[in-house]
């Protein structure tokens, strides 16, 4: 995308600190920023069949009704954020494109669509120690018995609000607000310190 040439992700200025965890196959803990993903907040009434149908047709996915994320075949995902709120992620379309598509499709139906792509960033956390690192600042029970793959929750990591998605056995995705990204990242690195020695 041409935009990427002039965009800048939130984690600037701490590159040297990131080097310790910026690894492809971590033996303990790895952190990679998935920058410039498209994020659009979608609000609407899930009890309205029209709303759900239109969204599902437009995005080609099933809107999750509870704490989970669903995927389209074309790089688009929907993350449950509340009883009338979803975070739509995309690696294919830009925020304005997705915003316009949904807004046009939902014309006449009460809803809200807001491009928040620059408002969030995403950390991909991997490795056998990822749960231990998260447990230092997040009160959630991350055990596979209660937090299976595909599960999505909102909580906090120390004092930053987060959305946590379990992508795979040892891979979580953490969505955090842009202005909290550095704080959240530094807390993760600090929590991982004992595993990186």
């Amino acid at each position: 995308m041409s935009n990427q040439l002039i965009q800048e992700a939130p984690l600037v200025g701490i590159e040297s600190k990131l080097a310790r965890v910026f690894v492809k196959a971590p033996t303990s803990f790895g952190l990679v920023e998935r920058s410039f993903m498209t994020h659009v907040t979608l609000r609407g009434d899930p009890r309205s069949k029209t709303f759900v149908d239109v969204v599902e047709r437009t995005l080609q996915l099933t809107l999750p009704a509870g704490q989970a994320m669903t995927h389209s075949p074309h790089g688009c995902s929907a993350v449950w954020m509340g009883p009338d709120e979803w975070l739509i992620e995309s690696t294919e379309e830009t925020g304005p494109e997705l915003e316009t598509a949904l807004r046009n499709a939902l014309a006449g139906e009460h809803h809200a669509v807001v491009d928040v792509s620059s408002g969030f960033t995403v950390f991909e956390l991997t490795g056998p120690k990822v749960r231990d690192v998260l447990a230092k600042g997040c009160p959630l029970d991350l055990h596979p018995r209660v937090f299976p793959v595909g599960h999505s929750v909102q909580s906090h990591y120390f004092k930053a609000g987060i959305t946590l998605l379990r992508i795979d056995e040892e891979c979580y995705r953490l969505v955090v607000r842009r202005s909290f990204a550095e704080y959240c990242c530094l807390m993760l690195l600090d929590a991982a310190d004992e595993f990186l020695r």
């Binding site: 800048e8 600037v12 200025g13 120390f158 004092k159 202005s179 909290f180 550095e182 704080y183 929590a191």
Partner: peptide, 20 residues
């Protein structure tokens, strides 16, 4: 660990590095 710079989140704008 919530001491010093970790006591409370430090939020920065996208121009922070330029300002610095």
């Amino acid at each position: 660990r919530e001491l010093g710079d970790f006591l409370d989140p430090i939020r920065k704008t996208c121009i922070h590095e330029w300002h610095r």
